[in-house]
């Protein structure tokens, strides 16, 4: 099925949930509200004419100062049977940064959601094991947010692991060959 037709199908099925449909270079994005996202995903996964059985990717985007709501969770779905693809986006506001987890539909969403939680601070409701994944457990902040600095400005309040490594490097400097 053509991406445009899939988007129209979603539009007919969930008219009040849909915000807009965008097309760029043949790829169609469907922007939805987040409240019934799990139900919509279940429909996309199970409807025989769509049958999106493969979750290619799940990620977050931060549109700080560009768009409201601030965050978006982006799903890339693919159907191995029909060989078509669609991109679903769900807006997530900053004050209530949470969205339903879809681990129950595609088990592979597990780590993607953990990563999104780790780097953006978006809470996935109903996730079985929502912990930080790439960063240490006691890390502060969410690095992929646009207001997180590229280079640390924390000085004394730096993460303890970094401080320990630097102290060790300082201590080992006396073994350097001059």
């Amino acid at each position: 099925m053509e991406p445009k037709d899939i988007a129209n199908l979603i539009k007919d099925k969930y008219p009040e949930e849909l915000k807009e449909i965008k097309e760029f270079r043949g790829q169609v994005s469907v922007v939805m509200r987040k409240d019934r996202i799990k139900e919509i995903m279940q429909y996309l996964h199970e409807a025989p004419e769509l049958y999106f059985n493969f979750l290619e990717d799940l990620c977050g985007v931060d549109y700080l100062g560009k768009k409201e709501p601030r965050f978006e969770v982006v799903y890339h779905l693919f159907s191995l049977r029909h060989r078509h693809m669609i991109r679903i986006k769900a807006g997530v506001p900053e004050e209530d940064a949470s969205i339903d987890s879809i681990v129950g539909i595609w088990t592979g969403a597990d780590w993607h959601e953990r990563e999104c939680f780790d780097l953006f601070g978006i809470n996935f409701k109903g996730h079985p094991d929502l912990r930080r994944i790439l960063l240490p457990e006691d890390w502060e902040g969410h690095p992929l947010r646009k207001d997180y600095p590229l280079q640390s400005v924390r000085g004394e309040k730096e993460w303890h692991g970094y401080k320990e490594t630097m102290e060790l490097a300082e201590k080992n400097r006396r073994y350097e060959v001059r």
Binding site: F24, Q27, D57, C59, H76
Partner: peptide, 30 residues
Amino acid sequence: GEIYVATEVPKGELGYYIISDGSGRPYRMR
């Protein structure tokens, strides 16, 4: 605009999802 391009690397499917805001830098590269 935004684009998702998948390629078959030796390990499996490597996907690049790039969002451009019209500047010379990617707004988001996933």
